[in-house]
Computed example of a mutant assay.
Amino acid sequence: MRLVMLGPPGAGKGTQGQRLSERFNVPQLSTGDMLRAAVKAESPVGIAAKSVMDAGGLVGDDIVVGCVAERLQQSDAVDGFILDGFPRTVAQAVSLDKLLLSRRLCLTAVIELLVDEELLVKRVEQRAQDALNNGQSPRSDDTPETIRKRMASYRENTVVLSNFYHNQNRLIPINGMGAVDQVTVDILEALS
């Protein structure tokens, strides 16, 4: 199973990706998590990415594609993967297709979680509050201002991916507004 999870920030890609990862026994690969780990480790990639991420922008294709290409070479991703947060642009999608084609592979499907933007802002605010309630620091990008910037960037850069994958007959739109368990059921039914 080789899946891409599409949807705006806070749509539930990470949650659903984790559930699908467990169901299909393949790793969930979050470029956001990979980049946040690089930021935390203060690696050169992390330092370069930090200021862009904190401002709600998207990290450049070259950094992200290289990060993903390296990760897909690891042994746990040989039998499949779930990409969460990648690709975000058509250029990244083309790079992913080329990478998979070079390994004689292709995507199984692309799941797009469709959600209301105002609900997303509330979800992100709740995620930040939950982190504080659990004695953790919220993600630096979990603020209403940053999420609105990320939404604008998503609309500008990422929404065209729906058409790209629709034209490849790989896009599966899913209503992401329901309860978490129901969204999972809907995805599994669509994949079967």
Rank of each mutant, 00 (worst) to 15 (best):
residue 84 D to F: 10
residue 73 Q to Y: 05
residue 142 D to C: 06
residue 83 L to S: 03
residue 171 L to C: 08
residue 186 D to T: 08
residue 145 E to L: 11
residue 65 V to L: 11
residue 168 Q to L: 15
residue 62 D to N: 12
residue 7 G to C: 07
residue 4 V to M: 10
residue 120 L to C: 10
residue 54 D to Y: 14
residue 96 L to F: 08
residue 13 K to L: 12
residue 178 G to L: 15
residue 90 V to H: 10
residue 160 V to Y: 06
residue 140 S to V: 14
residue 25 N to W: 08
residue 173 P to W: 12
residue 67 C to D: 01
residue 56 G to V: 02
residue 53 M to S: 02
residue 44 P to A: 00
residue 20 L to G: 05
residue 115 V to I: 15
residue 52 V to N: 02
residue 6 L to N: 00
residue 23 R to E: 12
residue 110 V to M: 01
residue 70 E to S: 07
residue 33 D to V: 04
residue 113 L to R: 08
residue 76 D to I: 12
residue 82 I to P: 10
residue 69 A to S: 12
residue 183 V to A: 03
residue 165 Y to C: 07
residue 182 Q to H: 12
residue 104 R to V: 00
residue 57 G to H: 05
residue 181 D to Y: 10
residue 109 A to P: 04
residue 17 G to E: 01
residue 22 E to L: 11
residue 86 F to T: 02
residue 131 A to E: 06
residue 100 L to S: 06
residue 167 N to L: 13
residue 23 R to Y: 15
residue 54 D to N: 14
residue 138 P to N: 04
residue 68 V to L: 14
residue 113 L to E: 05
residue 16 Q to T: 07
residue 132 L to I: 14
residue 101 L to N: 06
residue 164 F to P: 03
residue 55 A to V: 02
residue 70 E to L: 06
residue 54 D to P: 04
residue 184 T to H: 12
residue 4 V to T: 08
residue 149 K to M: 08
residue 180 V to S: 13
residue 112 E to Y: 13
residue 118 E to T: 07
residue 175 N to I: 11
residue 20 L to F: 10
residue 92 Q to T: 02
residue 63 I to A: 01
residue 177 M to Y: 05
residue 40 K to E: 13
residue 93 A to Y: 08
residue 75 S to F: 12
residue 192 S to E: 11
residue 80 G to D: 09
residue 32 G to D: 05
residue 92 Q to L: 03
residue 146 T to N: 14
residue 40 K to G: 11
residue 118 E to D: 15
residue 12 G to S: 06
residue 78 V to E: 15
residue 164 F to C: 03
residue 95 S to R: 13
residue 130 D to Y: 09
residue 124 V to W: 14
residue 73 Q to F: 02
residue 33 D to H: 06
residue 79 D to P: 00
residue 22 E to Y: 09
residue 72 L to V: 02
residue 162 S to H: 05
residue 121 V to N: 06
residue 144 P to Q: 08
residue 105 L to I: 06
residue 74 Q to I: 04
residue 144 P to C: 09
residue 81 F to P: 13
residue 28 Q to A: 09
